[in-house]
């Protein structure tokens, strides 16, 4: 939990991304648990002997302290909070994908403690099982829900009736599933897969395949024209 004293705020946080700033400083995009996404200036963080040089890295749970009210706050302290196994290989790419998603979709100063906790759990899961599609899908669904874009996966958007598992649907990111026209070119999803996603049931392998296509379709809608770098740049490394 975070606390405030003398204009300084302390709380748990993760680094989402860093950019070098001037000779020795670092501009740090962080996800805090109770204050949402913030941009912090870490002065001198790139000096060779800076105590936070190795600490301000993505995926490491931190306890941060900062002050200032403006768009760009100043980081006054960074401490190691707890152990999180390092992500490597495909799990690392998945982690970068999550970070880019949040940088693109999450506004600054908009707290989502639930999302923070889900992010922490997702990192643990990625470290434990590697890049699993289900882990990413659960996080994407949660992210959309927290942002107020939660998916409606159980009712036909036209008739408001429960989905027919045997039928095929197109998906409107805002309204939900609609019975697919017989000769429609739009991407289609089976009623069975949509119901399974809604129930968080991933036993059928086809559910994961369809969920990946569905989330790409929905995220493309929210991201607009600019595709994610992590998707575009790493065609050779297929994200799950």
């Amino acid at each position: 939990m975070s606390s405030e004293r003398g204009g300084k705020v302390r709380g748990p946080a993760y680094v989402l991304h860093t950019l070098p700033w001037r000779e020795t400083s670092l501009l740090v995009e962080v996800l805090t648990r109770d204050h949402g996404r913030l941009a912090l200036m870490a002065r001198g963080a790139r000096r060779p002997r800076s105590p936070v040089r190795g600490l301000l890295r993505a995926f490491q749970p931190l306890q941060l302290e900062w002050f200032g009210k403006a768009e760009l706050r100043t980081m006054s302290q960074a401490e190691w909070a707890t152990f999180q196994p390092l992500l490597d290989g495909q799990a690392l790419y998945c982690g970068l994908y999550l970070n880019e998603l949040m940088l693109r979709l999450l506004a600054r100063d908009d707290p989502h403690p639930g999302l923070y906790d889900a992010y922490a759990e997702t990192l643990m899961a990625l470290a434990a099982v590697g890049g699993e599609g289900v882990v990413l899908r659960r996080f994407e669904l949660r992210l959309l829900k927290e942002l107020g874009y939660g998916l409606q996966l159980t009712l036909d958007a036209d008739s408001a009736r429960p989905l027919d598992p045997a039928a095929w649907y197109t998906f409107d990111p805002e309204q939900g599933p609609r019975i697919a026209a017989a000769r429609s070119n739009a991407v289609q999803f089976s009623g069975r897969a949509l119901c399974a996603m809604a129930a968080d049931d991933w036993t059928e392998p086809t559910t994961a395949v369809q969920a990946k296509a569905l989330m790409r379709h929905v995220l493309a809608f929210h991201l607009g024209h600019q595709d994610l770098h992590t998707r575009k740049l790493f065609r050779e490394i297929t994200l799950p």
């Binding site: 950019l19 970070n99 880019e100 770098h229 740049l233």
Partner: peptide
Amino acid sequence: RLSPLDGVGP
């Protein structure tokens, strides 16, 4: 080096 989030790709 690669820096995926800055768009620095292979």
